[in-house]
């Protein structure tokens, strides 16, 4: 019989290969995303234009550098952030349905944006474009803060956390509905647009902020890979091994709240990426968080980037809000995954 070391090594190599394949697919998707869009740019123009902007004529340069690159990159950054936040929250709450949204972060962001949309006509000094993401971010971080406060007061039992997150979710949805009631037609329309989620309003500043947030959080996640893996063996095992699970839970929820808040504050609600991305990664890579964490981030980026390509190519000349596509693609994907999982021995 082959030694365990060799078999385990083989398994690990196989998993890193899958990660490399995911990274390759994501890169491919990025290129496709740069190619897709109403204005015709050839692959050659795009490739040259990325490395040498001066080679393009001014119009194409603006399309590539001011529209397509930021849109394509924010898809990757938001997808990766949601994938990472999703995988960590599923593990720490030991719940396959957990996602950044279960914690109420996303509905809080929607509420914040709605508040800005309803109030901004009354605030003449600030442009809506600036104030909207800021309030969304503040509300989202606030909901994360509420959950952390609840953990302090009520204890870090995972069911308490989930229930409290869902309570926040419903509260924010109710308040948003109340705002609908008082908002004028234009604001209502904008709230709906924002609730669906779309990438087209993002510029370079947003790309840099979300990317920086992701890379600032990632090392802390990677530092916890062993603890998170251990947690998959059950909380009782981790606790009796002397792991401070409550502290770990607080840190992870802090991380996921920050990631989710920054991910949704510019682009609105992106459905299902934070839920399905981690599940696909789990099916492909297993439960070892050394590979699962990068895998989930890549899956999130890949899904959102793929949805972005679809949103521009499905109906020629029309850009469908990407949030619609992630839900439309995410639900069947989730169903298929669940069926596949059932069939597995």
């Amino acid at each position: 019989m082959v030694s365990l070391e060799i078999r385990h090594g083989r398994l690990l190599r196989q998993r890193w290969l899958i990660i490399a394949a995911l990274a390759g697919a994501t890169l491919l998707c990025l290129v496709l995303d740069l190619l897709a869009g109403p204005a015709d740019l050839t692959l050659r123009q795009v490739m040259r234009g990325v490395f040498d902007p001066a080679s393009l004529d001014p119009r194409d340069q603006i399309i590539l550098w001011q529209v397509r690159l930021p849109d394509a990159l924010i898809a990757l950054a938001v997808g990766a952030a949601l994938g990472l936040a999703g995988v960590e929250s599923q593990t720490i709450l030991d719940n396959p349905l957990a996602s950044p949204f279960t914690l109420g972060v996303s509905s809080a962001a929607v509420l914040g944006a709605s508040v800005a949309l309803v109030l901004s006509p009354a605030l003449p000094f600030m442009g809506q474009a600036a104030i909207l993401p800021v309030t969304a971010l503040l509300f989202a971080l606030g909901s994360g803060g509420l959950i952390l406060a609840a953990i302090r007061v009520l204890g870090g039992e995972r069911d308490t956390v989930i229930l409290f997150g869902i309570a926040i979710l419903f509260l924010c949805n109710a308040l948003t509905a109340a705002l609908f009631y008082v908002a004028d037609a234009e604001a209502t329309q904008q709230i709906v647009f924002w609730t669906i989620g779309n990438l087209t309003k993002a510029g370079w500043v947003e790309v840099v902020i979300v990317t920086a947030c992701f890379f600032a959080v990632l090392p802390f996640s990677l530092r916890h890979v062993w603890l998170l893996t251990l947690l998959r063996g059950g909380e009782a095992q981790a606790r009796s091994s002397g792991i401070n699970v409550d502290r770990l839970r607080t840190l992870v929820i802090l991380r996921t709240s920050i990631l989710a808040a920054f991910a949704v504050c510019f682009v609105g609600t992106i459905a299902f990426v934070g839920l399905v991305g981690p599940h696909i990664a789990r099916l492909l890579l297993g439960e070892d968080h050394r590979t699962l964490i990068p895998g989930a981030a890549l899956c999130g980026a890949l899904i959102l980037s793929g949805a972005s390509v679809l949103s521009k190519t499905l109906i020629p000349g029309v850009i469908i809000p990407v949030g619609i596509l992630t839900a439309a693609v995410g639900v069947p994907a989730l169903m298929a995954l669940l069926v596949l999982q059932r069939r597995r021995p």
């Binding site: 251990l230 998959r232 063996g233 059950g234 095992q237 297993g286 439960e287």
Partner: peptide, 8 residues
């Protein structure tokens, strides 16, 4: 869970 004893 889907974790392997080895990984645990």
């Amino acid at each position: 869970s889907a974790l392997f004893p080895m990984e645990l």
